[in-house]
Simulated assay, not measured.
Amino acid sequence: MGAGKTTVGQLLSRQLNIPVIDTDSYIEESFDKSIKAIFQEDGENIFRDYETNALQSLCGQTQKIITTGGGIVLRPENRQLMKEYGIVIFLYCDIEETTRRLATDQSRPLFKADFAANKKRFEARLPFYREADFTIETTKKPLDEIVNEIITCLE
Rank of each mutant, 00 (worst) to 15 (best):
D32G: 09
C59Q: 01
I18W: 02
R130S: 12
F134H: 11
G71C: 14
E96T: 06
R125W: 01
M1F: 11
R48E: 05
F90P: 01
P19S: 11
Q15S: 13
V73D: 03
I18K: 03
A103Y: 06
I66M: 08
F128S: 12
L55K: 04
K140V: 06
N78I: 01
R121L: 15
L11P: 00
S30C: 08
L143S: 09
K112V: 07
L102N: 07
L110R: 13
Y85A: 08
E145M: 07
L102F: 07
Y85D: 00
L74A: 04
A54M: 07
E137W: 02
S13M: 05
P76C: 03
Y26Q: 13
S13A: 12
G86V: 08
L11W: 07
I65H: 06
R121H: 04
K36C: 09
E149Q: 11
R48G: 04
V20Q: 12
K120D: 05
F134G: 01
G43N: 05
I136H: 08
E145G: 00
S34R: 13
R14I: 00
A54N: 04
K119N: 13
R79D: 00
Y85F: 15
Q10F: 09
S30E: 11
P127E: 09
V73A: 03
A113Q: 11
R121P: 02
L74T: 10
K83W: 03
G2Q: 13
L143E: 05
K83F: 02
L91I: 09
R48N: 06
Q15L: 02
I21E: 07
L91M: 06
I89H: 07
L12A: 12
A117I: 11
G69N: 09
M1E: 09
Y85C: 05
G60V: 05
T52V: 03
E51V: 02
L16V: 10
I151T: 09
I35K: 07
T52Q: 13
N78R: 05
K36P: 01
P142F: 15
I89M: 02
Y50N: 02
T138G: 01
I146A: 15
K36A: 15
L126Q: 12
A103V: 03
E131F: 02
T135M: 13
G4E: 14
T68F: 04
D105P: 03
R125K: 08
G70L: 05
G70A: 07
N118A: 00
V20I: 05
I18Q: 01
A37H: 02
G2K: 15
R108N: 13
G9M: 11
I38S: 13
E123Y: 04
R108A: 12
G86L: 03
D42P: 08
N53K: 09
G2R: 15
D49H: 12
Y129M: 12
F128G: 05
P76I: 04
E28C: 13
T23V: 09
S30R: 14
R125P: 11
C59R: 03
K112L: 06
G70W: 12
P142D: 15
E29N: 14
A132K: 10
G4Y: 14
E44K: 08
L102G: 00
